[in-house]
C-alpha cells in the first residue's frame, strides 16, 4: 500500500499538499498521514481534505518545532512512507532537510511540480536565482519535497464527513535548544499581491526620506509601494512582507514600476508575470531595462515627481 506523508507547521498549506497527494495517489490504494500544528478541529478539517490519519503537533513553548525531527525519523522507519511533502516555511525547510539527512533520503526544495513517470518521481524547481528551471528525476524512496503555500490546489472532493483518525504526537524530552522568547511580527494590513499597480523601490534611493516620492506616485496611481530585498532586510526601510523576488513575494500586477532597482535575477523572478513593467534607473546599462516594457534613463529624484504630476494631469483629463 502506498503511503504518503504531509508535514506542515501551517495547517492551510497541509490542505493544499493533501490535494496534491490525493491527485498523485489517484485510484491506488493508499494512506495519507498528515502531521500538522493544530487541534481536533484542524485535524478534522484535514481529514475532510483527504487525510486518513492526522498526528497533531504543537509549536512547543520552550523549544523549536524542528525538534520533532527525531520522532518523525522513528515514525518513518516504522511506516516507510513513499513520499513526504513538507510545507516550505522556514521551519518546514529546516525540518525537511534534517529528516532527509537522518533518513539518508533525497530532498527537493520548493518544488513547482511533482509528477510520477513510470515509477519515478519528476520534480521541477527554480535555480540560479530565478534564471532557470531544473527538471529533476528521483527514484529513491522516500522522496522528500518541500512546497511553498499556494503552489497546489486543495482537494476538490472535500467531504467534511470523511472519517479518519486523529492522534497526538509527543516531542522528545531533554532537548538542547531553549526558546528564550518569541516575538510575533505585526501583521501587515496590505497585501502587495493584491495590488494592481506596484511601485518598487531599490537601493537607488539614497535616504529613507526619498521613499516619499515613490509613495506619492503609488498614491496617485492607487497602488502600493514594494521593494528589493536589501531595502527591507539591510536598511529596514520597509517591512519584509514588501520585498519582491525569489525569496520574497511573487506579484502579478497590471503595472510594476521599478525605481532604482538594478534588476538582478532574484528580484526579477518576483515580477515575471506583471503585465507591464516600467523601469527607472540612472544607469543606462542597468539589467532592469532588459526586462522592462517601457523605461526612462534618469535620476529617480527627477523622474518620480514628474511621473506623479503626469498621472495627475492625465487622470484629470480622463475625467473632464
Amino acid at each position: 500500500m502506498t503511503k504518503f506523508w504531509i508535514i506542515s507547521d501551517v495547517a492551510e498549506t497541509s490542505y493544499e499538499l493533501l490535494g496534491k497527494a490525493r491527485e498523485l495517489l489517484g485510484d491506488q490504494e493508499g494512506i495519507i498521514t498528515v502531521y500538522l500544528i493544530g487541534n481536533e478541529t484542524t485535524g478534522q478539517e484535514a481529514i475532510g481534505y483527504g487525510a486518513d490519519l492526522v498526528k497533531l503537533m504543537e509549536l512547543p513553548p520552550d523549544t523549536t518545532w524542528e525538534q520533532y525531527a527525531p520522532v518523525l525519523v522513528q515514525e518513518a522507519q516504522a511506516s516507510q512512507p513513499e513520499m513526504i511533502l513538507v510545507g516550505a516555511t522556514r521551519r518546514g525547510k529546516d525540518l525537511a532537510a534534517q529528516l532527509a539527512a537522518l533518513l539518508d533520503s533525497p530532498c527537493v526544495t520548493e518544488c513547482k511540480s511533482i509528477e510520477y513517470d513510470d515509477g519515478k518521481v519528476i520534480l521541477k524547481r527554480i535555480i540560479y536565482g530565478g534564471l532557470a528551471e531544473k527538471i529533476i528525476e528521483c527514484c529513491q524512496f522516500p522522496v522528500i519535497a518541500t512546497v511553498a503555500s499556494r503552489t497546489f490546489e486543495k482537494w476538490t472532493a472535500k467531504d467534511a464527513s470523511r472519517e479518519g483518525t486523529i492522534e497526538k504526537l509527543d516531542l522528545p524530552a531533554g532537548v538542547n535548544v531553549q526558546v528564550v522568547e518569541r516575538r510575533s511580527k505585526p501583521q501587515e494590513v496590505v497585501n502587495i499581491k493584491d495590488a494592481s499597480i506596484v511601485v518598487g523601490v531599490g537601493r537607488g534611493f539614497s535616504e529613507q526620506d526619498e521613499l516619499k516620492m515613490a509613495e506619492e506616485l503609488a498614491k496617485v496611481l492607487g497602488g502600493e509601494v514594494a521593494c528589493s530585498r536589501p531595502i527591507a532586510e539591510d536598511l529596514h526601510w520597509l517591512p519584509e512582507d514588501r520585498y519582491i523576488g525569489i525569496s520574497g513575494q511573487i506579484i502579478k500586477p497590471n503595472v510594476y514600476i521599478a525605481a532604482g532597482i538594478s534588476g538582478q535575477v532574484q528580484h526579477v523572478y518576483g515580477i515575471r508575470d506583471a503585465k507591464t513593467i516600467i523601469a527607472i534607473d540612472k544607469n543606462e546599462n542597468a539589467p532592469i531595462f532588459q526586462v522592462a516594457d517601457y523605461y526612462i534613463v534618469g535620476d529617480l529624484k527627477e523622474v518620480l515627481p514628474a511621473l506623479t504630476e503626469a498621472v495627475k494631469e492625465v487622470k484629470a483629463a480622463n475625467k473632464g
Partner: peptide, 19 residues
C-alpha cells in the same frame, strides 16, 4: 540521489522601449 534531466532558462518577452 537526484538526477538532473534538464535545465532551461526563462526568457521574458518585453517591449524594451526607452521613452
Amino acid at each position: 540521489k537526484l538526477k538532473t534531466l534538464s535545465i532551461s532558462g526563462t526568457v521574458m518577452e518585453r517591449k524594451n522601449m526607452q521613452i
